[in-house]
């Protein structure tokens, strides 16, 4: 039995250990939607226990980029490694990339948690069922064990009382906290957040950010697409500014927010701050 701990990662039995120092290594990623070139030679490295916040105007490719990291989007050029494994593709003898078998892609995705802008909780399952679904049916963990972990996670995100409630009866902030718990229950080595607070009413943003901050402090490796500057300043190790499919600038939050080197970053920040 897992003992109930007082932190989020404790609930899933400690910090999942990424196998490599560099958890995410994206090299020259290129992506097209038809003829539209949405990612242009994007490179990004994320080290173990690092939190990287990606900012940029809408249409800049930041959401597309993190969707490529767990292969929800195909890429047309470059390579993305997570934990040293090439994501979504395998390399043939001639150095060409061929899309990997579905089963292997599913295995890779088990190591990558994702939180969506619109939560995407399963509406036909209760909060607890949402959380234990993948551990039981994907990881094959015994039901009782999964439930213990699931309850511990619910408690850590402050929703222990809601385990038997269906998502539609919960507020957006509550749904998003459950979505975070659902992703964590798979004990991922990496968490991706796709604008996790953009669909929330203002008064609910704080409760979700609190959970994310705690997660970052406890040493989860995270890529967060977000415009929450307060969050970025407080917990990001690095901020990456994207515009028009290109990484324009990256650095510590202080560097990027207080002394941006690029004109495009300055313009963008002046609009949102």
């Amino acid at each position: 039995m897992t003992t109930v701990s007082d932190n989020l990662l404790g609930a899933i039995g400690g910090v999942p250990r990424p196998e490599t120092d560099v958890v995410v290594d994206a090299r020259d990623v290129n992506k097209y939607f038809g003829r539209l070139h949405v990612l242009k030679d994007v490179c990004l490295q994320v080290k173990r226990q690092e939190t990287v916040v990606v900012i940029g105007p809408s249409g800049s490719g930041k959401t597309t980029f993190i969707r490529c990291v767990n292969h929800l989007e195909k890429i047309q050029g470059g390579r993305i490694f997570v934990n040293g494994h090439l994501i979504g593709y395998r390399e043939t003898g001639g150095g060409k990339l061929v899309e990997d078998r579905e089963k292997n892609i599913s295995l890779q995705r088990q190591e990558i948690g994702m939180v969506f802008q619109r939560f995407n909780l399963f509406p036909h399952m209760t909060a607890l069922e949402n959380i234990v679904e993948a551990p039981i049916h994907v990881r094959g963990i015994p039901e009782e064990e999964a439930r213990v972990v699931g309850r511990a996670l619910l408690e850590r995100v402050g929703l222990a009382a809601k385990e038997n409630v269906y998502p539609n009866q919960l507020s957006g902030g509550q749904q998003q906290r459950i979505a975070i718990a659902r992703a964590l229950a798979m004990k991922p080595a990496l968490m991706l957040f796709d604008e996790p607070t953009s669909a929330l009413d203002p008064e609910m943003i704080g409760e979700v950010l609190e959970v994310m901050k705690e997660l970052a402090r406890e040493g989860m490796t995270m890529i967060v697409v977000s415009h929450e500057m307060g969050f970025a300043r407080e917990v990001a190790n690095r901020v990456v500014m994207m515009d028009d499919g290109v990484v324009v600038e990256e650095g510590t939050p202080d560097q990027v927010f207080s002394a941006p080197s690029q004109e495009r970053t300055k313009t963008f920040l002046s609009k949102i701050l």
């Binding site: 579905e102 599913s106 990558i112 969506f116 995407n120 679904e133």
Partner: peptide, 19 residues
């Protein structure tokens, strides 16, 4: 978004469909 959430949890096509 339901399919995407299921995929992101590592479910296969069959699991995503049936569950």
């Amino acid at each position: 978004g339901q399919t995407e959430a299921a995929k992101s949890l590592g479910m296969t096509y069959g699991q995503t469909m049936s569950r």
